[in-house]
Computed example of a mutant assay.
Amino acid sequence: MNRMMNVNRFHFLCLVAAIFSTYSYAEFDDGLAAYKRQDYQTALQEWRPLANQGDASAQNYLGLMYRDGLGVTQNDGEALIWFRKSANQGNAYGQNKLGLMHHNGRGVIKNNVEALKWFRKAAAQGYAPAQFSIGYMYEGGRGVAQSDKQAFAWYRKAADQGDAAAQYCLGRMYAEGRVVMRNDAEAENWYRKAADQGHSGAQSSLKEMGESKALTNLRETAEQGDPAAQYALGQAYYWGKGVPRNIAETKKWYRKAAEQGNVQAQKKLGFIYGTVSPQDHFEEEKWWRKAAEQGDSEAQFYLGTMYRYENTGVVANYSEAMRWFRKAAEQGHPEAQLQIQQLQNRIK
């Protein structure tokens, strides 16, 4: 009889526990729904009782709300208390957040050794952000001896689970040839995975890789003698796009293109020799003339300007100036007609 009563009592207690557990899950989910719609007061009302009853997930979220000042006055000390309660119950989210608090010195004196301890506890449960954090600690020698090998291993664990920050760092290590042989294809692969999740660093790295590839292809084409590529490479050096700005290299590639009759390169050489120190007005006039003789109205106008004014490196010659202004005006150059009128008035 007593045995039957004990069995019934056990079943009753199990039923009660199940009922209360169901209520707890429902309350937690209600709090989560409120949190996601930024109704922080409702989330707080749902989670605080659960947290006080020892619910580790609710404790973690309460820590988040205090850390970020969501629905409550921001308080790192209070956040630390709730993260610790959650972490001490084995909650990986709470363990990782507690590690971050120690790493950043929020609510507690900065302590990377303690931070790493909590990151390891969370990582042991397979939590990817904690695995990334361990990689970050190893890469920078924070709270542990610096080790690119360990950093790579932990980044890989997190990256394989889809952690964008880890995917970016793994791509960077492939790009820099750290631990592994440099592999641009692998670097691009991991950058792209991170970029697809909106990681701005990965997006920038992909853009730089694209520019680098384009520049390599452009240089190869330029070295094969293509004038358009030579001009474009000169532009890259002039503006510092993908390469350090270098006027000597700019002139070199513009000249190669200009000598093959590229009008744009001829004009750019004329401009550079006339404005960039050291100036060379002989070269300036030479290249503006070559472009002008090919019928370029801008070059015709600038050549006319050189002959129109004193101290431009050539002897002033109104007749020569008028000739080039007229050629430019015939093609609709807006300032050339004004120069013609001014010259005609001056000659009178």
Score class of each variant (00 low, 15 high):
M4Y: 14
M5N: 15
N6S: 13
V7A: 14
V7D: 15
L15E: 13
A18T: 09
E27R: 05
F28D: 05
K36R: 15
Q38M: 13
D39E: 09
A43S: 06
A51M: 04
A51E: 03
A51I: 00
Q53N: 01
Q53Y: 00
D55R: 00
A56W: 05
S57W: 05
G63A: 06
D68R: 00
Q74T: 11
W82M: 05
W82R: 10
K85I: 09
A87G: 03
G90H: 08
N96A: 11
L98A: 07
L98I: 02
G99N: 06
L100P: 02
L100W: 13
M101P: 02
H102G: 05
N104F: 12
G105E: 01
I109V: 15
W118Q: 06
A122S: 11
A124F: 08
G126V: 07
G126D: 04
Y127H: 11
A128F: 09
A128S: 10
I134S: 10
G135S: 06
G135Q: 08
Y136W: 07
M137P: 05
G141T: 01
G141Q: 07
G141V: 00
V144K: 06
D148P: 03
K149L: 11
Q150V: 00
A151P: 03
F152Q: 04
A153L: 12
Y155V: 08
A158D: 02
A159R: 08
D160W: 00
A165F: 00
L170D: 03
R172L: 14
A175V: 01
A175R: 12
R178H: 09
V179S: 05
R182P: 01
N183L: 02
N183Q: 06
R192Q: 13
K193P: 00
A195H: 01
D196V: 02
Q197C: 06
Q197R: 08
G201V: 00
Q203M: 13
Q203H: 08
L206S: 11
M209E: 04
A214I: 02
L215D: 07
T216A: 15
N217E: 14
N217L: 15
N217D: 14
L218Y: 13
L218V: 11
Q224N: 12
P227M: 05
A228R: 14
A228S: 15
G234V: 07
Q235N: 14
Q235T: 11
A236C: 11
R245Y: 04
T250G: 04
K251C: 09
R255K: 07
A257H: 08
Q260C: 06
G261R: 03
Q264S: 15
A265E: 08
K268P: 03
G270Y: 09
G270N: 09
G270L: 09
I272L: 15
P278K: 10
Q279M: 13
D280K: 03
D280C: 07
F282S: 13
E284D: 12
E284W: 04
E284P: 07
E285A: 14
K286M: 10
R289C: 10
A292L: 02
E293D: 10
G295I: 05
A299M: 10
Q300C: 08
L303S: 06
T305P: 01
M306P: 09
Y307L: 05
A316R: 15
N317F: 06
Y318I: 10
A321I: 04
A321S: 13
W324H: 02
F325D: 01
F325R: 06
P334C: 04
E335R: 12
Q344H: 12
N345Q: 12
N345P: 00
K348P: 12
